[in-house]
């Protein structure tokens, strides 16, 4: 005799409500990770809020444009006291040579698919910094290439101040803050790298992000002799302060 199987009420309720939640979540994920559409825009800012934190994701994975350039993080430092560095080499300031941090980091990863993540630190900073800098105007890009030391604000104003709200529109301010965050990350990384390399005497650092496009497919058998390079430059900045534990992790 066939045994009749009954579905309990809690299971029924869970099945119905759970299915609705699953469908809503997947549709939201599709909207959040998909291309920019009016539908997606209409769901903002709720969509961004929902996917903030542990649900954050993006699946373009080498699309629409594949990764087609080498990205390098270059830096140098001034190894004299800040006041001496501010007056330049003529005042006796000692400057380090330029270092290609990305190349140095990636050297142990060559031919090794199981390399650790330290080999990609500067490259990941480069990627995010470049995107943030690309959203700036030509005038603002000139400002970031200039030197701003001894506490000078890069954009001439503290970005969280009322003055900044008057000077810039809301979208401009959003872009500037996003840039400032990434510049601080880049300068912080350069500071730690410089202190690891040249010791605690580092007072200011200068960073350049360089992109070398991969030789075009059509020229791969006969690559051009001169490799083109694109730069985004951060002028001299004050070295950042870090606590002992952070410094110890880099030594």
């Amino acid at each position: 005799m066939e045994k009749t199987r009954r579905i309990g009420l809690p299971a029924k309720i869970l099945m119905i409500l759970g299915s609705l939640v699953v469908i809503a979540h997947i549709l939201a994920t599709l909207a959040f990770t998909g291309p920019q559409t009016p539908l997606r825009d209409s769901l903002q800012p709720a969509l961004n809020k929902y996917f903030l934190g542990p649900l954050d994701q993006g699946w373009s994975l080498f699309g629409p444009g594949p990764y087609s350039q080498d990205e390098y993080f270059l830096m140098r430092a001034c190894l004299s006291p800040l006041e001496v560095c501010a007056d330049g080499a003529s005042a006796g300031a000692k400057f380090s040579e330029w270092r290609n941090v990305t190349e140095e980091e990636m050297a142990p990863a060559a031919g090794n698919i199981f390399s650790n993540r330290a080999s990609k630190q500067s490259k990941t900073i480069h990627g995010r910094f470049w995107t943030a800098a690309s959203d700036l105007s030509a005038q603002q890009r000139q400002l970031i290439a200039d030197n701003h030391i001894q506490g000078q604000e890069v954009f001439g104003v503290e970005l969280d101040s009322a003055e900044a709200k008057q000077k810039y529109s809301a979208s401009e301010l959003r872009n500037l803050r996003a840039y400032e965050r990434m510049e601080t990350v880049a300068v912080g990384f350069a500071t730690l790298y410089a202190k690891k390399t040249w010791g605690d005497g580092v007072s200011i650092v200068e960073v350049q992000m360089r992109r070398d496009p991969v030789t075009p497919f059509s020229q791969r058998h006969d690559p051009p002799k001169e490799q083109s390079q694109i730069f985004t430059k951060i002028g001299w900045r004050d070295a950042l302060e870090f606590n002992e534990e952070t410094l110890a992790a880099w030594k």
């Binding site: 291309p35 699946w59 373009s60 994975l61 699309g63 629409p64 594949p66």
Partner: peptide, 9 residues
């Protein structure tokens, strides 16, 4: 989505 992003490039 990875495929759809790619096909646009």
């Amino acid at each position: 989505e990875a495929g759809m992003y790619k096909v646009q490039g």
